[in-house]
Each structure stands twice: as C-alpha cells, then as structure tokens.
Design a protein around this nucleic acid. Structure first.
Length: 367
DNA sequence: GAATCGTGGAA
DNA sequence: TTTCCAAGATT
C-alpha cells in the first residue's frame, strides 16, 4: 500500500474539530490532557455502541447522577441498573458495564490496552477509544464512522473493516502527533456530521485530498452491506391479573430482552388449540414492535382470573404497585402504560386453566 | 463467520 | 410506508 503519511494527511482535522466540536456531557474541556473522569468515558462509550449521540445524552446524564462512580455501580442492584438503561436497548451492555465497573473498583483502572480489552463489553473499538479518550494512549479506535471516512480518504475498495489492522497501523502515528483523544473524536465527528453515508463534502476539511472525492467515487465507497432479514410474527401480550397482582416473566439470562421483566406472550399460529389466544376477546388496539431481526404484530390484552390460582412455573405474580419499578423493554412498557388507562377494565378469561398451561409452555424468552 | 442483540431518527 | 443504520461485542 502506498498510503500518504497520516500525521500530515490528517492534520487539518485537528483545527477543524477544535472549531466545530459539539459540547457533550462526557466530553472533557481539555482534550489534550487525560480525562478527569475515566468512568464517564467508559459509560459513554458503552452507551454509544450502535446508538446515536442524541439518544445517549439524557441516559448518560441520569446514569451519572444515579451511579456516579464505578464502586457505586458495582454495588447497585441489577434491576436498578437495568431500570436506568430502560429504553436504551442492547441491554447486555448494562450488565457488561456493571461487571467492568466491579473490576475497576476492585483492581483499579487497567494500565494498557490489553487490560481494557479484557473488561467485559469492551471490544477492539471501545477498548482503544477508552484508552485514547480517557488516558491519551495512542491506541487507534476505529468505529463505523472512522472506517467510512478512511475508506473514502484512501479510496479503498471493498469492506474497509477487512483491512482494520492496516488502517490502525496507518492512523497510529497521527494519534501521537495530533493528540490521541482529539484525533480519535475528530475522526468520528467528521464521519457523524460531514462524511456521512450521504456526505457534505463542501464542509469537509479534507475534501482537497480525499481519494474518493477526487476520483468522483464518494457515493460508491464504502459499498453497501446487506442487512439481516427480519422475521415477522403475531402474538398476544397478556396482562393476567388476579387479586391485584400480575403474572410476569422474571429477567432471563440470555436472549431477546434478557435482564428485563416481560409480560407473558402467546404466539399466534395457524393451529391454535383451545385455551390459546382467545379469538372472541378484544383488547386495546394493537401495534407493530420492531427489533433488529424481528417484527412483532402485538395484540395487548388484559385478562382477569379468579383468585386462588397456583403459581405458574417460570412466572411470578407481581403486585400492581410494584410494576413501575420493574425494568421493561418498550413493548412491555407500552402494555404497562395501557393498564393505567382510566376506566380500563379487564376481560374475563374464558378458560383460565388452559391459558395458564399455555403460558408455561411458551415461557421461553423470545419464544 | 454468521447470527444475535433494541430503539429511534432520518432519508 | 419502507429502509437504512448508528461511537459494536459476543457467541
């Protein structure tokens, strides 16, 4: 590869970033010194995985108020941790962050990149980003933004992620020359605000030297990647009530919405047996719940059982007054909100015993 | 290496 | 309305 010298090639990024950079709650005022709170960097980087800056900001602010130090997070109740992450998605990040905070609280901060990468939830990008932004180590952190920017600058064909090793080697000297924290964030900020999938080359400080720009190939670099196919299912989402308590799945260890409390569901299939989704009963209007690789047609229903039913295995009866404190995904939050509708009345379950047995059978997460 | 894991904003 | 996809990591 006959790539230009990175420190000179990327030099205009530094003054550009100093001029246009956004003020973010986790961003230090002085980007040339080690960050005053490495924990804030760790929290922000975990939250920012596959999540846009604007979404993260309010979560980050509340999180730092509730769990201001690694020790406080490590000691926190897991439900409380998930509650603070509620609505942000990819919930295992919250568990990784709590575990990483425990290691830091016990052993102190790692002293090298390998140590950071050994923390749960920190992969190649996040470990290097924390190293550069929190500690000013010259560790090349390449996220999706950086890969797109570098692919265009160097006019790389194919998926730039396959050349991660070469690109990290190329960028590293520029980190040392221009400041690890400053250049790391500048590269990502350029990708997030200028060198976007539909780029605004007129505002780019590197437009004069961008290989793709000069060659007129900006639109085709990097090439589009195929996305995962989405499966569609239809399900009933059930608020089963008895004696002012509701039946809920406690948090699962793995799978969709692991770590969160979930309402029981019944998947609608062609051969529905008696006791399954009650065809004659109408609940609230349904909606479509979309996940990365799953699309649910959700039909919410509130059913009333007579008192005295035995515990359903794998499910727990939870008092109405405690529902608000349980961490739930958006789908289950929505039914919880519906239950507070004034005047809303539960429907009588046509065959409670058959219903409960179906709930046991469908108890697996994300069935 | 492919599949999995949430949600929301924007084109 | 669809489609894309965002400061990715894990299994």
């Amino acid at each position: 590869m006959s790539w230009p010298s990175a420190p000179e090639f990327l030099a205009p990024l530094a003054p550009w970033f100093d001029r246009v950079r956004r003020e973010l709650p986790w961003r230090a005022a002085d980007l040339e010194a080690p960050h005053p709170d490495p924990y804030a960097v760790l929290v922000s980087e975990l939250m920012l995985q596959q999540t846009q800056v604007a979404t993260v900001i309010p979560f980050f602010t509340r999180w730092m108020e509730r769990f201001p130090t690694p020790a406080r997070l490590a000691a926190a109740d897991e439900d409380a941790v998930h509650k603070a992450w509620e609505g942000l998605g990819y919930y295992r990040r919250a568990r990784f962050l709590k575990a990483a905070a425990g290691t830091v609280a016990d052993e102190g901060w790692p002293t090298d990149l390998q140590g950071l990468a050994a923390l749960p939830g920190l992969g190649p990008y996040t470990a290097a980003a924390v190293g550069a932004i929190a500690f000013q180590w010259p560790t090349p952190a390449l996220d999706g933004n950086a890969f797109r920017v570098l692919a265009r600058l160097l006019e790389l064909d194919g998926d730039p992620k396959t050349r991660a090793a070469d690109l990290r080697t190329w960028v590293a000297p520029a980190l040392a020359a221009l400041g690890p924290s400053r250049l790391t964030q500048a590269l990502m900020e350029l990708g997030a605000t200028v060198c976007t999938p539909q780029p605004a080359c007129g505002r780019c400080p590197l437009a004069d030297r961008c290989g793709a720009r000069v060659a007129g190939r900006v639109a085709e670099i990097p090439p589009a990647t195929r996305r995962a196919q989405v499966r569609s299912i239809e399900l009933w989402l059930l608020a089963v009530e008895a004696e002012d308590r509701f039946l809920l799945h406690p948090p699962a260890v793995r799978g969709l919405l692991a770590g969160l409390w979930r309402w029981p569901t019944l998947e609608v299939t062609a051969g529905d047996a008696p006791g399954g989704p009650p065809p004659g009963l109408q609940g609230w209007p349904g909606w479509t719940q979309v996940y990365t690789h799953r699309r649910e047609a959700v039909r919410p229903l509130h059913l009333q059982l007579e008192a005295g039913f035995q515990e359903a295995s794998g499910l727990r009866w939870m008092p109405r007054t405690g529902l608000a404190a349980l961490p739930m995904g958006k789908r289950d939050q929505r039914l919880r909100d519906l239950l507070r509708t004034p005047g809303e009345a539960p429907l009588e379950a046509p065959d409670p015993q058959a219903l409960l047995s179906r709930l046991r059978a469908d108890g697996a997460p994300s069935a």
